[in-house]
Design a protein around this nucleic acid. Structure first.
Lengths: 250, 250
DNA sequence: CGTTCCCTTGACCGTGGTCAAGTGCAGTGG
DNA sequence: CCACTGCACTTGACCACGGTCAAGGGAACG
């Protein structure tokens, strides 16, 4: 019995979808919420984190307009956050990968300002915001970390505003590739070979481009030998060149 | 002596640039930080707020890259927040009017991600962030209000992302006019007649348009009888029509 | 194995950017 | 008081990037 139980635990550590994981043993603790917390504080955080079953592709973690209750940490898989304009067009406001926190746009109005949809089978940790507030009142580290998280989202959104208002199609696509590559590196995955979990349409709706333009830019990059792309699998062949393009030099 | 002092106090109430005002008697208390606080909590906030001399046009409240210490409430006048791209172009990330809080983009990295420049003679309240954190630890209202403020900035930035990625030049300009009009209304100023404190260039750098396009759209709106515009003085003649355009209906 | 959706590619077009010239207002100095 | 300078804004002519429309191919799902 004991042996079986131990085996189960060991399996947990290897299966990122498994719910029987906690913040202390989660391999994302170095980049996720626990980042700024002491060991005993992480234990307290752990007690309020709810880990549900994995979400299938296209399922939502929350939807635009829903009453805000929780923020969510991505444990495995990936999400897009998007809102729908008056004319029914979709604006993707961000992509979320493991260790990243989504749903913070709901705090201000007590309802989510965007929807979060799984781009593939994904697992999330739900963290009720009322508990975060309560915990933040007691743990200055927690409060500070959350202020920082919110502020960083602002900074990222403002960078994206700049991207949308100043950059060409090629610069936008290059920036996204560099960004995903860097986030993979942070999770100790290959920064040069990865699978894009989102569709061309999602990319377009994120970058302010049409699906056709995204496709054309990928083709052009491939023709120039900067990347290899086969459907959703990308290899970045010339990182410096892409960075050069993304940094809008010239 | 006493009479003189009383006279001074009375003048304070009428001159928005004057520093001898506190959060309790400030006529912006209904829309500024005190919004969510109890009377005795406002007194505590008041103790940490620093009120300096007015800033002249073109002076900065803080600069991109400066070490982050404080957030700022605009007391009078107006500001633009902007950052400079690698290629030296300016991206205006927001305009700030009395009662609004700026500088929150500095929390995450401990340095300001943008610069805040006065568009006219303006007064600000400086609020050291360390004191806000300390106060937030003690006053749940304060913590909650700050979480909300940060979140609302995220939501606004995401709306602006949508504007930049989906809307035409006319929709962008109409949106800005409607936004300024609404913020004026909140401060009990005329929503139909006001002076634009920022230049055409600032507007362009905010809306992702060139100065020429901004100018052309203003001219077109005037020709259509939607607005009257003479230099920086605008009269909105047909609010519904502008709202209609801004809402990207057709 | 078939249907459907996603993606690619091509031809054409339009919005807004670029370049350039001109106007008018503000501030300065004679 | 007016002339001079300079900057902000306006307006026009032209152009290019990316959007639109259309057709066809190929992967993924049932």
């Amino acid at each position: 019995m004991i042996a079986t139980s131990e085996k189960t635990v060991r399996e947990d550590k290897h299966c990122p979808h498994n719910a029987a994981i906690n913040c202390t043993n989660c391999r994302l603790s170095g980049i996720c919420l626990p980042l700024a917390l002491e060991q005993d504080e992480i234990v307290q955080l752990d007690e309020i984190v709810q880990r549900g079953r994995p979400l299938q592709k296209r399922q939502h973690a929350y939807r635009e307009g829903d009453t805000f209750t929780s923020v969510f940490a991505v444990r495995s898989g990936s999400f897009k956050a998007y809102s729908v304009t008056d004319t029914g067009e979709e604006q993707v406001t961000g992509f979320y990968f493991p260790g990243e926190i989504m749903g913070m746009d709901g705090i201000g109005q007590n309802r989510y300002a965007s929807s979060a949809q799984a781009l593939e089978t994904s697992a999330i940790c739900e963290i009720p915001f009322s508990r975060i507030q309560e915990l933040s009142g007691r743990l200055p580290n927690m409060q500070g970390h959350f202020f920082r998280l919110l502020s960083q989202e602002i900074v990222e959104d403002q960078r994206h505003m700049t991207l949308l208002s100043k950059n060409t199609a090629e610069q936008r696509v290059a920036s996204l590739l560099i960004s995903i590559s860097a986030r993979n590196a942070r999770r100790k995955l290959s920064p040069n070979r990865f699978r894009l979990p989102m569709s061309r349409g999602d990319i377009g709706h994120f970058l302010g481009l049409t699906i056709e333009t995204v496709s054309r830019v990928f083709s052009r990059f491939a023709k120039q030998g900067l990347i290899e792309i086969e459907n959703k699998d990308v290899s970045i062949l010339d990182v410096p060149a892409l960075q050069h393009i993304a940094a809008q030099e010239d």
